Simulated assay, not measured.
Amino acid sequence: MKTWEMIKELTENPKKKFKNKNIPYIVVACNSINLLVNEEGNYINVPFDAEWEEVKEPVSFIQVLERVKNNLSTRITLHDEARERIYAIRSLSGILRDLDEEFDSKEISKILLEGKWYIE
């Protein structure tokens, strides 16, 4: 997304974070006069035509369950770093079905608790 789109997203949800592969910092906030701030709290200038992508923060498995409970169409991603596996943009039932086919209950419980969950 372009800089103006990133600023629009930040004004709608100031908790979002964005990164750019050519700029060495992450933009984390937009104050009341639309100045961008980096993670250290310093005001920054960015090129208007820069391309940005949202930085997704992992959530707990309990947070995933709460979201799915309220919205069955929630799409999630699970990063299982211990086994170097990613279950990308799926439903919770799809991920659980895949885990059940590959692992026993003990391994599944470790993956659910230790994996990094992202809500899309």
Results as ranks from 00 to 15, higher is better:
residue 14 P to Q: 14
residue 29 A to H: 05
residue 87 Y to A: 02
residue 109 S to I: 05
residue 22 N to Y: 10
residue 44 I to R: 01
residue 88 A to H: 04
residue 59 V to D: 09
residue 14 P to Y: 04
residue 49 D to A: 12
residue 84 E to V: 02
residue 19 K to A: 02
residue 10 L to G: 12
residue 72 L to W: 10
residue 10 L to W: 15
residue 14 P to F: 02
residue 67 R to C: 10
residue 11 T to K: 15
residue 54 E to W: 11
residue 12 E to S: 13
residue 12 E to I: 15
residue 43 Y to F: 10
residue 66 E to V: 07
residue 79 H to P: 01
residue 36 L to E: 09
residue 48 F to P: 08
residue 62 I to C: 01
residue 79 H to T: 02
residue 74 T to V: 00
residue 54 E to P: 13
residue 18 F to S: 01
residue 113 L to I: 14
residue 40 E to N: 08
residue 85 R to L: 06
residue 92 L to W: 07
residue 102 E to P: 14
residue 33 I to V: 14
residue 112 L to C: 10
residue 108 I to Y: 12
residue 110 K to N: 13
residue 81 E to W: 01
residue 52 W to D: 02
residue 79 H to N: 04
residue 94 G to C: 02
residue 92 L to V: 08
residue 119 I to E: 09
residue 24 P to Y: 11
residue 59 V to H: 08
residue 112 L to Q: 05
residue 95 I to K: 01
residue 74 T to F: 04
residue 93 S to P: 08
residue 44 I to P: 05
residue 90 R to A: 03
residue 105 S to T: 09
residue 48 F to C: 11
residue 56 K to S: 09
residue 16 K to G: 13
residue 80 D to C: 03
residue 100 D to Q: 14
residue 113 L to S: 15
residue 24 P to K: 14
residue 39 E to R: 00
residue 13 N to I: 04
residue 18 F to L: 02
residue 23 I to M: 03
residue 51 E to K: 10
residue 60 S to R: 03
residue 35 L to C: 09
residue 71 N to P: 01
residue 119 I to H: 08
residue 8 K to Y: 14
residue 103 F to L: 06
residue 22 N to D: 13
residue 14 P to W: 03
residue 106 K to Q: 14
residue 19 K to W: 09
residue 56 K to A: 00
residue 33 I to H: 11
residue 45 N to Y: 03
residue 15 K to Y: 14
residue 108 I to S: 01
residue 59 V to L: 09
residue 75 R to C: 01
residue 71 N to R: 12
residue 116 K to S: 09
residue 110 K to C: 04
residue 107 E to T: 15
residue 6 M to N: 06
residue 98 D to M: 11
residue 35 L to T: 10
residue 4 W to G: 09
residue 9 E to N: 12
residue 39 E to T: 03
residue 59 V to F: 05
residue 4 W to T: 10
residue 37 V to P: 11
residue 67 R to N: 11
residue 73 S to N: 13
residue 94 G to V: 03
residue 54 E to C: 06
residue 32 S to H: 08
residue 95 I to H: 00
residue 100 D to M: 00
residue 11 T to Y: 15
residue 11 T to G: 04
residue 6 M to T: 07
residue 87 Y to L: 03
residue 9 E to T: 11
residue 13 N to V: 05
residue 62 I to M: 04
residue 1 M to N: 14
residue 11 T to R: 14
residue 110 K to W: 02
residue 49 D to P: 00
residue 21 K to W: 03
residue 59 V to Q: 06
residue 108 I to K: 12
residue 100 D to I: 08
residue 27 V to W: 05
residue 108 I to C: 13
residue 41 G to L: 06
residue 86 I to R: 01
residue 41 G to W: 04
residue 18 F to E: 00
